[in-house]
Design a protein around this nucleic acid. Structure first.
Length: 543
RNA sequence: GGGCCCGUGGCUCAGCCAGGACAGAGCGACGGCCUUCUAAGCCGUAGAUCGCGGGUUCAAAUCCCGCCGGGUCCGCCA
């Protein structure tokens, strides 16, 4: 809806209707700063230019009023816009959707299967999964991938660990982590075992059956645990792609063949590439003839590019250099490049996390702790044991997802358990609670909603305008690939509703005012629900 | 050493890419609001040289240059 308002503002401005000058504003529904630019060119004051422009334009479409203030040209939506917004929300099951087309591949999480997901991986999962949800809402044909690094040194070490220490009887990913950590310690004290690790890696790349079986077993175990954790926080993947698949399916060979004709250097059988703008050269094939991570990743991206219009990778910022090299090589090979969303590290107050050293907070542990805390808060309320369980789980999942989602990806985060356990404002529970409040009103009303824009108070009008922005924010996330702006929007919406809730009684209002407010509450509750879904956060009708 | 990212009230963050209306929230502090739709809420007060120094501009938290502090990367590892 809001997108239409923008369109109409541009239309209204006619020759001055450049989209880049149209902005959201706290003073109006929309504003244009075009007068400032023209003022600069014509050496007049922005106020005069804006006044001048105002005399030449007539509001069209949803634009009801245009004003010139301090050089800004402010737009206000008319009643029809408010009416159509509420109608769209109440009648369209898929409100928020915009009709975008295309096939999009989103690869995220892709943690090494050498242990459980920790809170750093969670940031990746939440960003990736939320992007997937919002991209789908935008109408795009989305597939999500988890790329399993099954050929790494860490897998060989894990297998070594299982052979030496077996697996404990606990959640499989945690059992795998223990074997992996023990094996690392073993390796530190017995460097001669290094050869064994190399041997395992070589055998695996050469598709040795027995080695494959061992790797596969370890990986399946780790992945079963990882998948259980992801499922619990509503993170889903359409496919799990194994790195080694690209050796078997010939894509690695394709890449190597394609590279041959493009200025590679060969030294003793090793294939090396010098990239302009990069200090170090990149090796794509070892002297012993085996491939490297980057070779297989190139193969994976070749495959992606053949099947998708847009590719998005959610990667930790430690992969930035690697990512730049990968993009450069893809460019040289003439292969369509992915967009990479880098997110900065989540560290602990005592420093960097490390699966290898067993220094991490697992996602499972975090979920349990947050859930216990949520239970304490609802202990005083009248809920059945079953409801307590359901509500605390939903609140915990929401709190965790939202905590990671709301922070811009490029911000480094230092994880603070006491803050994670705090359910004050600016959290998912605030939005969940707001939704429950709206539901509570609707449960007690038996009247048909009937929206009347002329009866709206300022807060009510503001609310409707905010609701109209839901599809706009879907659009923005798809374009900017920044899911945190959506979290911000939802918080603002919830806040506005709570303001309304305090000052404007619904059930006690008279006739058409009541019906009008019921319409607004219905629309708000629906949008909150849609928004929570898009963030993968459970919506609770009671809490 | 070089590349990249971050640095906004006591704390956590938004705003920066596409420069413009008094730098916005939340936590914490202080003071109010439940015989009224769920107080996990709402309202108010105090609190900011937007890391520092230059520059561009009518206008800079936002763009450019230099510096400082923190993080991260720089393997024939993945």
């Amino acid at each position: 809806m809001f997108l239409n308002l923008i369109k109409d503002a541009i239309q209204t401005l006619g020759e001055y209707g450049e989209e880049r000058f149209i902005k959201e504003s706290e003073y109006a529904d929309l504003t244009s700063t075009v007068a400032f630019k023209i003022a600069k060119e014509t050496r007049k004051s922005p106020e005069d230019v804006a006044d001048e422009i105002l005399t030449r334009i007539t509001p069209t479409g949803y634009i009801g009023k245009v004003e010139s203030v301090n050089g800004y040209i402010n737009f206000y939506a008319n009643y029809e816009f408010l009416e159509d917004t509420i109608e769209a929300i109440l009648n369209d099951e898929n409100y928020g959707a915009i009709r975008m087309k295309g096939k999009v591949l989103i690869e995220h999480t892709s943690a090494n299967p050498d242990g459980p997901l920790h809170i750093g991986h969670l940031r990746n999962s939440v960003i990736g999964d939320t992007l997937a949800r919002i991209f789908r809402k935008a109408g795009l044909d989305v597939r999500t991938h988890y790329y399993i690094n099954d050929m790494g040194r860490q897998m060989a070490i894990t297998v070594l660990g299982i052979e030496n220490f077996g697996l404990k009887d606990k959640k499989p990913d945690h059992a795998i982590a223990e074997a992996y950590i023990s094996a690392n310690r073993l390796l530190e004290n017995n460097p001669e075992l290094e050869k064994k690790v190399e041997d395992l890696m070589l055998k695996y790349e050469n598709l040795d059956k027995e080695t494959e079986r061992k790797f596969r077993e370890a990986i399946e175990k780790a992945m079963a645990g990882i998948r259980a954790t992801m499922e619990r926080i509503n993170v889903y993947h359409d496919e799990f792609i194994w790195e080694s698949d690209f050796i078997r399916n010939g894509y690695v060979d394709k890449i190597l063949k394609s590279l041959e004709s493009r200025g590679l250097i060969k030294k003793n059988g090793a294939w090396i590439m010098e990239l302009e703008g990069f200090e170090k050269e990149v090796v794509l094939r070892r002297e012993n003839g085996t491939s490297l991570y980057v070779t297989r990743d190139l193969a994976y991206h070749l495959w992606k590019s053949e099947n998708f219009d847009r590719m998005i990778n959610v990667w930790g910022a430690d992969h930035k250099l690697y990512g730049a090299q990968l993009l450069k090589i893809l460019e040289i090979l003439g292969i369509k490049k992915p967009e990479i969303v880098f997110f900065e590290f989540v560290s602990l107050p005592e420093g960097k996390m490390s699966t290898r050293k067993g220094k991490f907070i697992s996602a499972d542990e975090l979920i349990e702790k947050v859930k216990e805390e949520a239970k304490k808060i609802i202990a005083s309320r009248e809920f059945s044991a079953e409801e307590v369980e359901k509500i605390s789980e939903a609140v915990a999942i929401g709190a965790i997802r939202f905590d990671f989602l709301k922070v811009a990806p490029e911000k480094p985060m230092v994880f603070d358990m006491s803050k994670a356990l705090d359910f004050e404002r600016q959290t998912a529970s605030y939005i969940q609670y707001t939704y429950s409040r709206a539901c509570s009103i609707l449960r007690k009303s038996y009247e048909e909603p009937e929206f009347s824009p002329e009866l709206c108070e300022k807060v009510e009008r503001d609310l409707v305008i905010m609701l109209s922005k839901l599809p706009f924010y879907v659009y923005r996330v798809v374009n900017e690939v920044r899911p945190n702006i959506f979290a911000e929007y939802m918080l603002a919406l919830a806040s506005k509703f709570n303001e309304f809730y305090r000052d404007y009684p619904v059930l006690k209002a008279e006739d058409e005012v009541r019906r009008n407010r019921i319409a607004i509450v219905s629309a708000v509750s629906k949008c909150l629900k849609i928004g929570l879904d898009l963030m993968g956060i459970p919506a609770l009708e009671r809490m």
